[in-house]
């Protein structure tokens, strides 16, 4: 589904990603962990096509196509969804209107008929219920005045409405209390399926108790310093990131 090869990227001339290789198959969940500043969020931003990030080398294919060649909205329409670490407020635009526009932009791109208002409302109500979000939220302006937890739940709600092939969750667990964390995780787990993959970016192992990954990768100094199964996350919990970081620094110094 997603193949990242030797990806190098920088922001304002500062090199952040220094050669990422990652294969994400359909039906799998990959956790990407790492200390602050290791490049986790940069990876998410580059995949989603955010402005201001320059790709210096490497390639990314998504469902067989060159992802880096696509505008951000095309990536979204092709089925890539980013749950934002800091969801953005859009005053005066109702959640309902915004999300229906999103759904229909994607449907138009795929040659499907647009959803009428009534059908969309039914869909939205059905998807919002398991996430424990007050349906009144649909009438509020996008993310405006939402608490941190509400914003994160709302990201997962949007994902469940848009049904992407690839969901990238950028620190969706940060700022969530344990109950919200469970609800959000159940929302993600409900979307897991053979045709869908997830890249779960997180700082803490905590989230991975609820969203159980197939693979865990540890990012340090802009590279994947270590990959393994879910037990790697438990090791990190015990030993911290230091032991991996030291190893990766040594590797970088050796010039490999």
């Amino acid at each position: 589904m997603l193949r990242i090869s030797n990806l190098h990227a920088s922001v304002d001339g500062k090199r952040i990603l220094r050669g990422i290789d990652l294969d994400v198959e359909a039906g799998t969940v990959h956790a990407v962990m790492g200390p602050n500043g290791s490049g986790k969020s940069t990876l998410a931003a580059v995949l989603a096509g955010r402005d201001g990030y320059s790709v210096d080398a490497g390639s990314v294919t998504f469902r067989g196509q060159d992802l880096l060649d696509m505008d951000p909205e095309i990536r979204a329409r092709e089925g890539l969804f980013l749950a934002f670490q800091y969801p953005v407020e859009i005053p005066g635009v109702s959640m309902m209107y915004f999300l229906r526009e999103a759904v229909n932009s994607i449907r138009r791109y795929r040659g499907l008929a647009e959803l009428a208002a009534g059908d969309f409302i039914r869909l939205a109500r059905q998807k919002i219920q398991p996430l424990g979000i007050d349906p009144g939220m649909l009438k509020r302006a996008v993310n405006e005045g939402f608490s941190g937890g509400e914003k994160k739940r709302c990201e997962v709600f949007q994902m469940s409405v848009l049904e992407p092939c690839l969901g990238i969750l950028d620190e969706t667990d940060s700022g969530l209390d344990i109950d919200a964390l469970k609800v959000v995780s159940e929302g993600v787990n409900g979307l897991r399926g053979p045709d869908r993959a997830f890249v779960v970016i997180t700082h803490y192992q905590r989230l991975l108790r609820y969203i159980v990954p197939d693979y865990v990768h540890v990012l340090a100094n802009g590279r994947i310093a270590r990959s393994g199964d879910r037990t790697l996350a438990l090791d990190l919990e015990r030993h911290g990131y230091r032991w991996i970081e030291e190893r990766s620094t040594a590797l970088a110094a050796a010039g490999t």
Binding site: E73, G92, Y97, F98, E101, S105, A141, Q158
Partner: peptide, 20 residues
């Protein structure tokens, strides 16, 4: 960018933000 990431193209995004 947030709207782009949901599949909405830039002109529509600007119009949505301004209308809001």
């Amino acid at each position: 960018f947030y709207l782009n990431q949901r599949g909405i193209e830039t002109e529509d995004a600007v119009s949505m933000i301004v209308n809001g």
